[in-house]
Design a protein around this nucleic acid. Structure first.
Length: 120
DNA sequence: ATACTGACTAATC
DNA sequence: TGATTAGCCAGTA
């Protein structure tokens, strides 16, 4: 039980799929839900690697709400358009108001992930 | 095994 | 007040 030493990157994919439609999460938030609060950088790296289409990577922004350059997307405006198509308003500086569109996960969510990942 | 990378963040200056 | 620096750590070569 819980001994699943799954890749951190795989965890990232699982957590990201839980980001609700029309909401965004931060790298740090994802990292925290994966049980590694300081792995925010790895989150971005993981998403870049996991861009299989099954992971809503466009819903992840940095802690200030800025779209992270979108270098992994085909063009810089793609992430923005994807978000807008979900109803997420993106500011002129490619910025999202986290107060409004940030995913506010519950403690239950965190506990569920913790259980799922085995909380190392 | 060691070195380098990187879609970040928090702490300093 | 904003800009810079250093820390972070799993994955890859």
């Amino acid at each position: 039980m819980t001994g699943q030493k799954m890749d951190f990157y795989e965890r990232v994919g699982i957590v990201c799929r839980r980001i609700p439609y029309g909401k965004v999460a931060t790298y740090g938030q994802i990292a925290m839900l994966c049980g590694k609060p300081n792995n925010s950088r790895q989150v971005g790296y993981a998403l870049n690697r996991s861009l299989s289409g099954e992971v809503p990577a466009h819903r992840v922004v940095n802690h200030k709400g800025y779209l992270s350059g979108a270098s992994a997307f085909f063009d810089s405006g793609m992430q923005r358009r994807m978000l807008e198509s979900e109803g997420v308003q993106v500011g002129e500086e490619n910025r999202v108001e986290l107060k409004v569109f940030g995913w506010r996960h519950t403690l239950e969510d965190a506990l569920e992930f913790r259980r799922l990942f085995g909380d190392e």
